[in-house]
Design a protein around this nucleic acid. Structure first.
Lengths: 147, 147
DNA sequence: ATGATTATGCAATATAGTTGCATTAACAAT
DNA sequence: ATTGTTAATGCAACTATATTGCATAATCAT
């Protein structure tokens, strides 16, 4: 759904063989405006094309490993997957509704994180900073005020 | 382990009946410098006092609900639990080692988050902002350089 | 004591993810 | 074309984590 993203190129640039299944997984994730769970990716693909659940998990791992896809820890149990930041997609925080479990991408500049001090006080190697905003989404707020 | 925290008071102020099990759970969490999984809390308590696994889950839910304890989404599968921010404990980011799974509390001012724009662009109700730093911890870095 | 409410225990179940091994596909070297 | 090699996928079984429903025990106000 993103005009800039050629999924075939994304995979090749990451050094990942662009098989049909991998392209499907990536297209489903890239075509969604909110990050999806593995189960959602699986059932979406399955509607049009037979694929195994385990294959989806393995492809997701592979794509996360190669930074094509980003694993987002939602408040709930299942991880969510979205396109990893790249030259067309700025890193951005995610919102998790603690009522309905929805995961939503927030505006990249709705929050700014200053990590300058981190290097000074922490001895590990940092690869990624994830910001998770928790609360009640608009829909759930509406429903709650209804009674 | 925290001189300021009286667990009994913490529970009472939160409106939670301070039963023996709840005090144990809270003491184990408060007495640890890094957030623990439910399984870790359970097995720690179990060593000195019989308790059911499910009870631990229920108490953790209750304490999270009442903001005595904070649920931290680590990179891995199991949630981690630490003391929720209160007047003696500033909110702080957490580090997750993607190699060994360790979860570590970072310095409260190692990262600063500016959420001013969030209200302007987001219609939900925000209750909490969680910052998760992912990477390789010091120990794993050492081990890796050993061969 | 009696009854109501809350907390805990126990067994069963659900959910998410992983593993081991078999099969198939892709492709290079004869 | 045939063979061998590697990579990708499928399938079944399994593991880890968390949740549920219902029974029992504890607590507390009458």
């Amino acid at each position: 759904m993103c005009a800039h993203c050629n999924y075939q190129n994304l995979l090749e640039e990451a050094g990942v063989e662009p098989t049909a299944n991998r392209l499907q997984v990536l297209a489903v994730i890239g075509g969604n405006d909110a990050p999806l769970t593995a189960a959602e990716v699986f059932s979406t693909i399955e509607r049009s094309h037979p694929i195994n659940r385990v294959t989806v998990y393995r492809i997701l791992d592979l794509l996360v490993q190669n930074r094509v896809v980003e694993r987002i820890s939602s408040g709930g149990r299942a991880a969510h997957f979205g396109l990893a930041p790249n030259k067309y997609h700025a890193p951005h925080p995610h919102f998790c509704c603690s009522r309905c479990g929805a995961v939503i991408c927030l505006n990249p500049d709705s929050l700014s994180v200053d990590a300058d001090n981190l290097q000074k006080t922490f001895a590990g190697e940092v690869s990624r900073i994830e910001v998770l905003v928790e609360g009640i989404c608009r829909n759930c707020l509406k429903q709650r005020s209804n009674h």
